[in-house]
Structures are given as structure tokens and as C-alpha cells.
Simulated assay, not measured.
Amino acid sequence: MKLNKVIALIRTESIPEVNIVLRKALRTDLGQLNRMKRNALQSEGTVSKLERKYRIVEKGIDVVHEEVQQRLVAIGAKLERYDNRTEQYRQNRLFESNQKKLFEELDGVERETVVPDAEESTRFWSDIWDKPIGGYKTTYIEVTKLKKQVRKLPNWKSPEPDGVQGYWIKNLSNLHGSIVHQLDRCLQENHVPVWMVTGKTVLCERIGERKRSQGRRDGGCGGILAEELYEHLEQANILPWEQKGYRKGSRGTKDQLLIDKMTMRNCKKRLTSLAVAWIAYSKAYDKVLHTIDSRAVSIVRYGAGIIKWTKNELEELDRKTRELMTIYGAHHPKADVDRLYLNKCDGGRGLIGGEDCVQAEVNSLDKYLGASEENMLKEVSLSSTLENNK
């Protein structure tokens, strides 16, 4: 290949494209060199070209053949590193935008994309929401409730169809009274302007019910009304204590794991048989992304307080972390290790060590269990079920 052609490729194409072209040319030359070694290359012009290009008379055919092979291996390794790095960048961006899709890709799961029927979905939800229901308690929205909800709005996120960003709704507090008046009017007149309910509605499919509109849930709900409903359910003691997923301030799965661990440890200590029954198992997990669970179990903080970590295991974890940081250029091999774990405000790097991570989570769980009013969690707190609790 001529030098000016390579320079033109470098100017117009990316480096991987140049390497691909070079690899193709080297493969061609390697094939011709193989034929030349066997005295099977008949073209005198090709022989003369190879001799001038690789100085075969000076180096020898065997040395030139080995050099071309090594160059091919080097270019192949460079292209492989580039492909791996490109894939890593793509996965990092996908993790930020769509974690579920990334984990499905890693597990090789291909999901069928089902587009719901618009008319069927509209008909199904109209049968539910368009029918008037009597006997309910009248709810009035107050300014304090509105202020509590608008604090949760992100400041500069893309605005809703009204075009007003969250920053202005938060800080133009003189308008909160007018907003409350308009919302109360919508509730009392049972009429909402079309622009207020215009937006994106996410229909979340249930397992096994992909083609039915009944198998999808409406993702939209007003924050203030949701707060009122939750307070009503709490005051009426309607929420079952064993359901943790929608309880505020609950640790969810960790609560259940700690209760299970306490029960199993108690039975083992007293040599008592234990019978376990699962009720609506698939229903309980139909909204859980199991690919995330399978990876979350390996995270130190997730298992802290439930899994007993030894000091040697945590030290080995920190050592492996520093080794990977050194390999990828994030930590100099001769840099001070203690500074790596100092807070950034103290001049450190702010990395959280394995032992500190476990102990912080255990302390948080211990405080959570001590303040809980639930009977089973009180028993967990008294039974010293937490691991690594100092």
C-alpha cells in the first residue's frame, strides 16, 4: 500500500478504519509470502514488489514472513481493544438511560415489543374512571400540601405541556394560592381541562398478559391525591404489615430478609422444624427486574447486616478495587493508600472502603430497627440478628 494512500485514510477516516485497511493489505501480502516460500508464486512483478517492500533479499523470507504475522497480530489486538472500549462506553451510556435494557442485553434476554391497542386501552380505562362513584369523602387541597409536593419537582427538567419548569413553580410562591384554588375547583366540579391531563402515559405490562389492556397499569397519579390516599390507608389500618413495597420509610426486601433470618436462627437454636409456604409468589415478584437482583446481591451494601463479612474478605475486596483502579489508570501504583479513602473536603479521593461501607449500613439498619414500631422488627432488634454489628 502506498504511503500517500494511508495518509489520505488517516485524514478522512477514523483510526480503526485505517487499521482494518492495513490488516487487509497485510493478509494479502502474507498469502503471497506463503506462496513465495513454497516457490508457487509465478508473477515476477509481485515477487519484485514484495522484495522491494519488505527487503526480502536483505532479511530473508522467513524473517519477513514472521514480521508480517506479528504485525497482523498487533493490529488485531488493537482493533479488539478498540471494540471493547467502544462497547464499554455504549454500555455506560445505556446504564445511565435504560438500566433494564442493559441487564437484559448482558443476560441475552430478548423481549418481544408489544404495542398496545389504543382503542382497547381507552375503552378499558374509561369503564373504570368515567363511571361516577358516590359515597366518597370530599378532599380539599391546601397550600401546605401543595408546597410539600412542589418541593419534589426537579428544577430544570423538561417542562410539562404547560411549558413551566419546576424552578418557577417552586419559587413563585405568591401563585400557590391561585393554583390551589384552581385544583380545588377541578375536584369539586369533577372536570379537568384537557391541557392539564395531556402528556405521556406509560402502560406497564404484567407478566403473561402482554396483549391485554387489562394487563397494563396507568403510570400517572397526582402527588397530592396519592398522599391523601396513603394517609387514609394508614389511618384506617388497611395496609397489611407484611407488604413492604409501598410503605414509606420501609427497607422493603431487607425487612423480610432480617425477619426470615431471625426465624431460621431461632428454629435452629431450639432444634425446631420450620415449614415455609409461599403465597402468590409470582404475583409478589411480577414487578421486580430479576436481572438487577442477581447483580445487586453481589454489592457489599446490599448484603450488609444480613451476610457476615470477615475482615479478610473486606480487605481483599479493597485490595482488588485498588488493583483495578491502577490497571485502568485511576490510581497511581505509588500513590498514598490512606489518602484514597479520605473525604474530598479533607484533601482525599473520597473512595468508600469495604469495611466502612458495611459498618455504615449496619449502623443505619440498627437505628432503623430500634425506631421501628412493627412487632416483628422489634424482635429482630432484640435478637441481635444483624451481622457485623459492633
Rank of each mutant, 00 (worst) to 15 (best):
I327F: 01
L314P: 04
T321H: 08
K308T: 09
V297H: 00
R339D: 14
V297M: 02
T321A: 12
V297P: 00
H290C: 08
A330C: 01
V337L: 12
G303D: 12
K320E: 07
K320C: 03
I299S: 00
V297I: 13
L340Q: 14
A304D: 08
T310W: 03
Y341V: 08
M325T: 01
P333S: 00
R301C: 09
K308E: 15
V337H: 11
R322G: 01
L289H: 14
H290G: 05
A304H: 06
R295M: 13
S298K: 09
R319V: 11
A335T: 02
R301K: 14
A296E: 15
V297Y: 06
V337Q: 12
S294Y: 13
G305T: 08
L324D: 14
L314W: 02
L324M: 08
K320P: 00
I299R: 04
Y328H: 04
H332Y: 00
A330D: 07
H331G: 08
W309V: 09
R295G: 02
T326V: 03
H331W: 10
H290Q: 07
R301Y: 14
I292F: 15
A330H: 03
V300K: 06
A335G: 03
L324K: 07
Y285N: 12
S294V: 12
L317D: 13
Y302W: 08
T326K: 02
D336C: 04
E313S: 08
V297A: 01
R322H: 02
D338N: 01
G329W: 01
D336R: 05
V300Y: 04
G303I: 11
A304K: 03
L317Q: 13
L314S: 05
A330L: 03
R322P: 02
R339W: 08
L289T: 14
K287T: 15
Y302I: 05
I299N: 04
T291R: 09
E313I: 01
G303E: 13
R322L: 14
P333R: 02
I327W: 00
L317V: 06
R339M: 14
I307S: 07
T326G: 04
L340H: 12
D338H: 01
R301E: 15
R301F: 13
L340I: 09
D286M: 09
L317A: 13
L289R: 15
E323G: 06
K334E: 05
W309P: 06
A296P: 01
W309T: 09
S294P: 00
L317W: 13
V288G: 05
D336M: 03
H290M: 10
L340K: 12
T291A: 05
D318K: 10
